[in-house]
Design a protein around this nucleic acid. Structure first.
Length: 411
DNA sequence: TGTCCACAGGAATGGGAGGGAG
DNA sequence: CTCCCTCCCATTCCTGTGGACA
């Protein structure tokens, strides 16, 4: 890196032709006007929901599809159209969107729903059934069709499906309003854990969003690139490459758009006038590293300690480590930094969480005579992760700490 | 062939934080 | 203030288990 005078620094950046015309189009918060390759899904969704415009209750719908297959975009798009059409027909038709990843308990869900209808419910403090009653009362004030979109509904199930059961039976208690639900899930088999009664009521209709293939992703990217980039800003191979990378990730269009955007940002930073193949490769790498760093940074301290234990063991020649070994080292780290030592039971849970976040890879293996354990392999780059860990002042004392490894390597 | 290791992971419980209502 | 909610983390106690080895 060469230093420049401040003057020159900005001058150079300004003189350079920008590659982007409108970068916002490439972010996922942007909902496009037309959704390519999703006509079938839009039509089936609309044909089910149309009964709302006749004043009937539409069937409940379950929508499946992996991340970045356009589920949310399509659902919201159709929802907006429905509300608009209802308005012009003089019908009260309200579409409510909730993301269960953020709102992940029965209470919060009901409170949030009620608030969307203009009634205030405190963050906490009420018994849940009171909130439910309040919700029913609120919507029943008016003759209307209410459509509740529950995005990432699978997150809700893990905490018990009482809400869904209650919501699916709500119509029997209502005089004026009618409620129907759309559940959106990226877990194809989440209904297995569902109460059979809820399952049959919620899944009256099902719509599946298949992953995009590389060609379809290319089409999507072409469409957006026209708005996002200046003409001729992209090398010929850029879009196909983004599409190919994203197709490997189960056809994730969101990922493809990220790649296209980040590749452009990298090119811009290098003062290039257009985006080249190598920028896409750089983008692929950067996205992954950024994700990991962000996740590790926001980990609770105890999890950081557990993760650092795995890293220390790896540095000492262990390729894959077991829970017992990790716990051993973890205890020493806790003493060193004066933190409470959690039980092994808790630490196994922490490891499972790290596994789910993709920071480690944990597989249960049986070693016969030598018991049954989890083999944990680090799946993040060790140096950059370490740097992030030591940003936490509580881990500072560990920087040069060497744990005593009591267990032997067998095999 | 049965044993038995070294844990996995479910269930119940506790306790504290955050926040009502009265 | 007290009494009650919910939510989350953590502990305790527990039952379950794949397969190398005796």
């Amino acid at each position: 890196m060469q230093s420049k005078s401040l003057d020159g620094l900005f001058q150079e950046l300004l003189e350079n032709e920008p590659i982007f015309k409108n970068k916002e189009v490439l972010r996922h918060s942007y909902t496009p006007d037309s959704l390519v390759h999703r006509d079938d899904q839009i039509n089936s969704l609309a044909s089910i929901l149309v009964s709302a415009l006749r004043g009937d209750t539409p069937s409940n719908i379950l929508i499946y599809g992996k991340t970045g297959t356009g589920k949310t975009a399509v659902t919201r798009h159709v929802g907006i159209e429905l509300e608009r059409k209802g308005e012009s027909l003089g019908l009260s038709c309200k579409v409510v969107y909730l993301n269960c990843e953020v709102i992940d308990t029965q209470y919060r869900l009901l409170a949030n729903l009620t608030r969307q209808f203009g009634e205030d419910v405190p963050m906490t403090g009420w018994p849940t059934d009171q909130v439910f009653f309040k919700f029913k009362e609120t919507i029943d004030n008016e003759r209307q069709v209410v459509i509740i979109i529950l995005d990432e509904i699978d997150k809700l199930i893990k905490k018990g499906d009482d809400v869904l059961y209650n919501l699916s039976r709500i119509n029997t208690d209502l005089e004026n309003a009618k409620v129907s639900m759309i559940g959106v899930s990226n877990d194809l088999k989440f209904t297995e854990f569902l109460d059979p009664r809820v399952k049959s009521s919620l899944g009256e209709e099902e719509i599946i969003f298949p992953p995009y293939d590389a060609d379809q992703i290319s089409d999507i990217l072409h469409e957006r690139a026209q708005i996002a980039y200046k003409p001729d800003a992209l090398d010929e191979m850029v879009i196909p490459l983004c599409a190919a990378f994203a197709a490997q990730e189960h056809g994730d269009a969101r990922r493809a758009l990220d790649l296209l955007r980040v590749a452009g940002e990298i090119a811009e930073r290098e003062n290039k006038s257009h985006v080249e193949e190598q920028h896409v490769k750089g983008a692929q790498e950067k996205i992954e590293v950024d994700r990991v760093i962000e996740v590790v940074r926001t980990l609770p301290t105890q999890s950081k300690l557990a993760l650092y234990s795995v890293m220390l063991l790896r540095n000492n020649g262990y390729k894959n480590v077991t829970t017992g070994e990790v716990y051993n080292v973890y205890r020493q780290l806790c003493l060193q930094v004066d933190m409470d030592i959690l039980t092994q039971r808790r630490v196994t849970d922490l490891m499972s969480e790290l596994d789910m976040l993709g920071i480690v890879n944990a597989v249960v293996v049986s070693k016969g005579r030598y018991g049954r354990t989890k083999e944990i392999v680090l799946s993040v780059p060790i140096n950059s992760t370490k740097k992030v860990l030591f940003e936490d002042y509580r881990l500072k004392p560990l920087e040069f700490f060497k744990p005593v490894l009591t267990t032997q390597l067998h095999l």
